[in-house]
Design a binder for these strands. Structure first.
Length: 302
DNA sequence: AAACCGTGGAG
DNA sequence: TCTCCAAGGTT
């Protein structure tokens, strides 16, 4: 998987740069994910990255396959209706992502001749594409050398470099920090960007880290310091039960399943609190996830 | 800039 | 059961 590298020190040596060790570890430990297969085009990578925003790999895989089977190019997707993409999104969650991905496909078709751009600023100008996703697409989709920082990477750096238990909030300097750890060789630096994420996803996990199998455990500042507990302010866990997110989810669930516009009564049935239900329906209308027909019924936007 | 935006599996 | 959390982005 990995090619020979121009390292002046023997593999495994404590003098071996951290980046090189992580890349070597990745060669033997990486998951066999479909969007990592050689030849995966930038559009397919973009779709995977958007789907993976806050959604676990296992749930993304089947949807990603069917999505690309149906819309293999940005131009193909640009011709789809919002209702189609909302349904195809299924229950991945945060359905506004589906809407934005479609809008991104339209923008790519109109502004970039149907070709997913490789430049960071052009990618970040696309709906639903931020700091992370832009660099992931440029790096993993186009093979550009780019620092890529997600929550996994921030956690690895927090522990390995700063000796802290948890990742600090994202900063612009994160990109500089991780770039400093990357191997010199471009091909290996590109591999390094995925490799650090993988290390955070498989070994240096949020719950119970698997330090015994970590390839860089001997130079991890957090482990060397005796795994000090997180000292900063406890980060809030988002509630779900009873929130607008749950109500919106139920409302949309009804409309996804419906083959024709539904009466308001059908929506009343899924949530008792009329005030909250109404607020959520309104917000779905504002978001463009739902439309109201002339006769007052509701449906996905066809 | 803190809060909001879904969903379901794991511990 | 219930808490945590999974490749963020937007406002």
């Amino acid at each position: 998987m990995s090619s020979a590298r121009p390292s002046p020190v023997p593999p495994g040596s404590s003098a071996d740069p951290v980046g090189e060790v992580v890349v070597d570890w990745y060669a033997g430990a990486a998951r066999d994910l479909p969007w990592r297969e050689p030849g995966t085009d930038p559009w397919a990578v973009l779709v995977s990255e958007v789907m993976l925003q806050q959604t676990p790999v296992a749930r993304v895989e089947p949807v990603w396959r069917s999505w690309l089977d149906r819309w293999p190019t940005p131009a193909a997707m640009a011709g789809a209706s919002p209702a189609e993409v909302i349904r195809a999104w299924g229950k991945l969650g945060y359905p506004r992502r589906a809407l934005r991905l479609r809008e991104a496909a339209v923008a790519i078709t109109e502004r970039h001749g149907g070709v997913v751009p490789a430049e960071i600023d052009e990618l970040e100008a696309l709906p639903g594409v931020g700091t992370y996703t832009a660099r992931a697409v440029s790096c993993f989709g186009h093979g550009r050398r780019q620092p890529v920082v997600d929550t996994n990477v921030r956690r690895v750096v927090a522990r390995l470099v700063h000796g802290r238990a948890e990742a600090a909030p994202a900063r612009a300097s994160d990109l500089v920090d991780i770039a400093a750890l990357a191997p010199e060789d471009d091909a290996r630096a590109i591999r390094f960007s995925v490799a650090v994420m993988e290390l955070g996803a498989l070994v240096c996990v949020a719950g119970t880290p698997r330090c015994p199998v970590c390839p860089v455990k001997d130079r991890c500042a957090w482990r060397l310091a005796g795994h000090p507990a997180h000292d900063g302010p406890p980060r809030r866990v988002q509630k779900f039960a009873g929130t607008d997110r749950q109500v919106r989810g139920r409302l949309l669930d009804v409309l996804r399943a419906a083959s024709a516009p539904v009466e308001e009564d059908a929506l009343t049935a899924v949530w008792d609190d009329a005030v909250q239900r109404s607020r959520c329906l309104d917000s779905l209308l504002v978001d463009g996830l739902v439309v109201q027909t002339d006769d007052g019924r509701f449906s996905l936007p066809e």
